[in-house]
Design a protein around this nucleic acid. Structure first.
Length: 355
DNA sequence: TGAAGAATAT
DNA sequence: AATATTCTTC
């Protein structure tokens, strides 16, 4: 926006990536039109993605509440049935490999015309992490179990394993020497039921909270990140934990994204009960007058399905049974990220390693 | 048997 | 470094 209506200025802005040059003062009518630019930009990115991905004909994206980092498929010209996770030899899981040759993994190979699908990594965005922390704090010390965290987070598509992994990471930020960790009375000595003299009784303590100080935000600020703003339709874990062919990328305008990040990470004061329109965290709900179902709109018109949104229904429905149709139509696409960095990542370099 | 947590692979 | 996957315990 600029005070003066200067064509040169406008050109400069456009060249630098602006979508629209607006002369001040901005009118409400003008603002109300802006959603079209969001849609257009999404379409553009979508096209671009499709072009890059070849024909990533993906389906159930719209149900996913998590973002995925790129790296979708890679060549597998070696052996059919090659599990893409070539971790250590499995001791139990595998039946027996007769004469040294791996028969077949129980876990399907996920081969799609000679390509093996790898599972994407979700990206723990700040928003996602905030939800995680909210859940953790609600549960409290000694009660932080992945499953419960997952439920509290209520993010469609997120799996318990992923939460587990994240939890592990955050607990490990507390990392000391292995032995020190074994006998961890130091950390939250609250319920140290078993005094273990190294090796006697199991020192294992369940449900401990992750290390909070690792997080940038002070607790009181973190607590109220986004709550009341979202009550999702719950969608539990993905139907299978296997290798979904999700490719997706967040598609959203950067500015919006940044604004949102800011909202999420910055201090704010709204608390649970607030409904969306009066929620200071989403002032643009009222302000920009975006169509409620902008995603739906976009999808319908583009005929493509993307998973850049997350269910953000305003009504709680904990009906475990609603994976039926379009579980998250009323979405707002807050979940997105800087789109660029992950998409190309290391997919090319890994192809050759398979053996 | 399923979940938690640790260990390890990617 | 961040995540996913496997393994071991419970």
């Amino acid at each position: 926006m600029s005070i003066d209506d200067n064509a040169f200025l406008a050109m400069g802005a456009l060249k630098n990536g602006a979508f629209l040059f607006i002369k001040k003062p901005v009118t409400m009518d003008m603002l109300k039109c802006l959603w079209q630019h969001v849609v257009r930009e999404r379409m553009r990115i979508q096209k671009e993605n499709d072009r890059i991905m070849g024909m990533a004909a993906t389906n159930n994206h719209s149900m996913s509440g998590v973002e995925f980092r790129g790296e979708v498929e890679e060549e597998n010209n070696i052996i059919v049935g090659n599990n893409n996770y070539k971790g250590k030899k499995r001791k139990r899981a595998r039946k027996s490999s007769i004469n040294g040759i791996d028969e077949e993994c129980e876990s399907e190979p996920q081969l799609i015309n000679n390509k093996v699908k790898r599972k994407e990594c979700i990206q723990w965005t700040q928003l996602l992490h905030s939800k995680f922390m909210d859940a953790v704090e609600q549960l409290g010390e000694g009660r932080c179990f992945p499953k419960e965290i997952l439920e509290l987070m209520d993010v469609p598509g997120l799996t318990r394993m992923q939460v587990s992994s994240h939890l592990q990471k955050f607990r490990n930020d507390n990392w000391r020497a292995p032995e020190e960790r074994k006998s961890k009375q130091n950390n939250a000595p609250a319920a140290s039921t078993d005094t273990n003299i190294s090796g006697q009784s199991k020192p294992r303590r369940f449900g401990s909270m992750p290390c909070l100080k690792k997080n940038s935000l002070p607790i009181n600020e973190r607590r109220e990140t986004h709550e009341g703003s979202e009550v999702h339709t719950e969608n539990d874990e993905m139907p299978n934990d296997g290798y979904e062919s999700i490719t997706i990328e967040p598609i959203i305008m950067n500015s919006n994204q940044q604004y949102h990040e800011q909202l999420v990470s910055g201090p704010n004061n709204s608390r649970p009960g607030a409904n969306s329109s009066s929620n200071p965290r989403f002032p643009y709900d009222d302000f920009f007058n975006f169509p409620e179902n902008i995603d739906c709109l976009f999808q319908n018109f583009s005929g493509m399905q993307q998973g850049f949104d997350i269910g953000m229904n305003m009504n709680e429905s904990s009906d475990p049974e609603q994976n039926s149709a379009l579980p998250s139509v009323k979405t707002r696409s807050q979940w997105s990220s800087e789109t660029s960095n992950f998409a190309s990542n290391s997919s090319e370099t890994r192809g050759q390693e398979i053996e």
